[in-house]
């Protein structure tokens, strides 16, 4: 199963409440369900944030473990998924601070080449994944977070405002400028190296 993450169905919140209640009472099966439900999204977000794929798996794991350890402190004032993704954001920030890692160009996954756009110009087609991930590495962290939460995770603008604790106008601005910068970075990458 793959494909873009696009928002969350409304019934999710009810299911989450139930799972969290059970997990708090020590039901590890409930926590397993939580991990299964969110692992793709959390791993994808963290990958975009920290850049390195293998680091991202470790950071995503750390995020879930932090969430587990802190379930008792989750008060339900925000939705569980908002809380979980805030933990993931924090874990990624901690990682970035400790590593001061710029996004390293990864070895190109051969599968990516197969999935690269077959037809159409760069303007029209999907952009090769590795180039876009490289471009992400050049984006300021605050823009990167906003763009990833919207375009990869499918959070609503108001949810992103809550997640990042910023006004919704700032969310709109960061997303607009983040996408614009990504587009610019991609355009720069297409200039042949001499």
């Amino acid at each position: 199963m793959s494909g873009p993450a696009r928002g969350f169905p409304p019934e999710d919140a009810d299911e989450d409440r139930d799972l969290v209640d059970r997990a708090r009472r020590g039901d590890q099966e409930a926590f397993r369900r939580i991990v299964e439900k969110y692992e793709r999204r959390v791993r994808g977000l963290v990958w975009g944030l920290v850049g390195d794929r293998s680091d991202a798996e470790d950071v995503a794991q750390e995020a879930f473990l932090r969430a587990f350890r802190s379930l008792s402190s989750f008060g339900g004032r925000s939705s569980f998924r908002t809380w979980l993704f805030q933990i993931a954001l924090n874990a990624a920030r901690t990682h970035r601070q400790s590593r001061r890692s710029r996004l390293q160009p990864e070895a190109v996954d051969p599968a990516d080449l197969e999935r690269a756009p077959e037809t159409g110009s760069v303007e029209q087609g999907l952009i090769a994944r590795d180039r876009l991930r490289r471009a992400l590495g050049q984006l300021p962290a605050d823009m990167r977070e906003a763009v990833l939460l919207r375009d990869v995770e499918g959070f609503e603008y108001r949810e992103i405002a809550e997640l990042l604790d910023i006004p919704i106008g700032t969310v709109e601005s960061r997303i607009f400028r983040g996408r614009a910068r990504l587009r610019e970075a991609l355009a720069a990458q297409t200039i042949p190296e001499t």
Binding site: R6, E39, R40, G44, L45, E57, L126, R133, R183
Partner: peptide, 23 residues
Amino acid sequence: LIRTSLSEALSLDASPAFVARVL
């Protein structure tokens, strides 16, 4: 263009191995 491409670039398959590692 970016909106359409980004989710593709970072989409991952579900990973039972990851779930097992966390648990």
